[in-house]
Design a protein around this nucleic acid. Sequence first.
DNA 1: CCCATTGTGTTAGTCACTAACAATTGTTAC
DNA 2: GTAACAATTGTTAGTGACTAACACAATGGG
Lengths: 163, 163
Amino acid sequence: MRLFLERGFEGTTVAEVAEAAEVSSMTVFRHFPTKEHLVLQDDYDPVIADRLRHRPAGEPVLHRIAASILDGLAELPPDPRLLLARTRLILYTPALRARVWENNHATQQVIVAALPDDDPFEVQVAASACLAVATTVMVRWAETDGHADLRELMAEALAVVTR
Amino acid sequence: MRLFLERGFEGTTVAEVAEAAEVSSMTVFRHFPTKEHLVLQDDYDPVIADRLRHRPAGEPVLHRIAASILDGLAELPPDPRLLLARTRLILYTPALRARVWENNHATQQVIVAALPDDDPFEVQVAASACLAVATTVMVRWAETDGHADLRELMAEALAVVTR
DNA sequence: CCCATTGTGTTAGTCACTAACAATTGTTAC
DNA sequence: GTAACAATTGTTAGTGACTAACACAATGGG
């Protein structure tokens, strides 16, 4: 991340990352399948899944997922600078931007697995919509340089879909 | 497309595509910025934008976008085999799957531009949600080998978000 | 102490993609 | 018809992500 922030993602080669980490390039690729994976790992899938399981089953699927995503924000580290830097990096790097859907798709599967009692297609649809909204919010938040209240923004955006 | 369908996307080199088209590799890259672009061009952005502009302004943004996407399906060619093949190719090729968000993001911008009188953030949020739903529907449709009624599926899925 | 497992390095290669320049074709002006 | 110009294409040589194959250490258990 340090190198990427200093020189940009495309301006940094995997060989340089490897050298800075004092390993060979080969070793980097053994731990991260692609260069993009060095940036694009997020740890919030299990958080969301966990929140999902603790929701009353009466609510519509869409509401449960939206609420879980919103609640999950509480797990973010208090200092959002790293998150902001990462989001900006993703936002301005085509190769990274492109992988976002792949990431959301993986999260979708986790959500579907966490709600075995609901119609899988409906869950998939609701999850993809909510995650798209969440992504849009992150982009918007990064565009305000992190000055906007992330939770407030997320609540407002999810309301567009859940109301 | 013929080569990609015969040998798979990763199993076909750009050099082979170039040879089949009787041009040099360089020429291919001058017309298509990446190998993925050979598959991932869709012509429905202007269709959707057009439908959007002919909607009554009274409706909520989300409904207008959803309805336009649904209406836009009418413009699809009557024989869906090519669309099905393309969707399948995208679905099973990680490199292509990854680019989907990039595509949807471009469509989002088109939608925002087509609705200059509405709150851009709300439009962005609604558009990203609807497009994510549409993508999920295409995936599902491809998984049924095109046997499902695409329009019906799309209507059902969009209803999850608009109801 | 031996052996199997695991992690790592090395090398050589493929392939997407770029930059620079040369060759070709098409188009317009005269 | 031809000269001047622009647009398109080809060629070459390169960079960099990523893979496959094999050799070499380190670790840990019997």
